[in-house]
Computed example of a mutant assay.
Amino acid sequence: MIKEGSKAKFDYTLTVDGKVADTSSGRGPLEYTHGAGMIIPGLEKELAGMNVGDKKTVTVKPEEGYGLVREDAIKRVPKEAVSNAEELKVGDMVGASNGEHTFRAIVKEIGEKEITLDFNHPLAGKELVFEVEIKEIN
């Protein structure tokens, strides 16, 4: 049974907005240590007490997944601050760095002089539906 400190492996398919967003299919099960904060809290909480072979559909609210969309994580930056700004289109993922941390952002808007970047996690604000099957517990 999965409990604090268990190392468990599970297969999963993640569906967001009715579309498959991620799956372990073809890659092998995901391994994690229960209670170590390696997976999102809402999923970890639902896996507690499951046994090898158990299957479950888990719905995770944004607050227990990748968080709510934070308006303060959406920034307008001058076009010249973004390399290859002329080639970007809305929806593209760009990398940014402040010296010690690297960030990823999604291009939300491209204006005449500014680009609006969204630094929220791409799944922030989304309800996550996981189909899980426990494969191994150590």
Rank of each mutant, 00 (worst) to 15 (best):
Y12I: 01
Y66H: 13
I74E: 11
I39S: 03
L68N: 11
K7W: 08
N84W: 02
V58I: 15
E64Y: 10
I110T: 09
K79I: 08
S25M: 07
K79C: 06
E71K: 15
E87T: 06
S24V: 01
E100N: 12
E131S: 02
L30W: 03
K19C: 05
K7Q: 12
D11L: 14
T57R: 15
V60P: 02
E4Q: 14
G67N: 03
G49A: 06
V20C: 02
E64F: 15
E46H: 12
N84F: 06
D11R: 08
I110G: 05
P29I: 02
A85R: 05
K7Y: 09
K135L: 00
G99N: 06
E131C: 00
R70G: 08
N51M: 07
L88C: 01
F119I: 04
A21Y: 09
P29N: 04
M1G: 08
K108D: 14
N120Q: 08
M1L: 14
V107L: 03
P62R: 05
Y12D: 01
P29W: 02
T33W: 00
L68S: 11
L117E: 11
G42M: 03
V16T: 04
R104T: 09
L30E: 09
T23A: 12
V52K: 15
V52D: 06
E131D: 14
S25L: 15
P122H: 09
T23K: 10
M93F: 11
K61P: 03
V129D: 06
D17V: 00
A81Y: 13
I74Y: 09
L43T: 05
M50Y: 04
N138T: 10
D11Y: 12
K75N: 10
E114H: 10
I115C: 11
E131G: 00
G37F: 11
V132T: 12
Y32K: 10
L14K: 02
G99V: 04
G53Q: 09
K79E: 11
E112G: 13
H101D: 14
S25Y: 09
N138R: 11
E100Y: 13
A21P: 03
R76Y: 12
M1W: 01
A48R: 09
P78K: 13
M93N: 11
I2C: 04
T102W: 07
A48V: 09
E127V: 14
V129K: 15
L68E: 13
K9W: 08
G125D: 10
R76L: 15
P41K: 15
E63T: 08
G35Y: 08
I74S: 12
T102A: 11
V20N: 00
D72F: 13
I110P: 05
K75L: 15
E133V: 05
E44W: 01
K135S: 06
K7A: 10
L123N: 07
L68M: 15
N120L: 09
L123A: 13
E136A: 15
K3D: 08
I39W: 10
G53M: 06
V16G: 02
I106F: 00
V132G: 08
K3T: 14
E44D: 15
L14Y: 04
K9I: 00
K126S: 10
N138V: 12
K7F: 09
L14Q: 01
G53I: 07
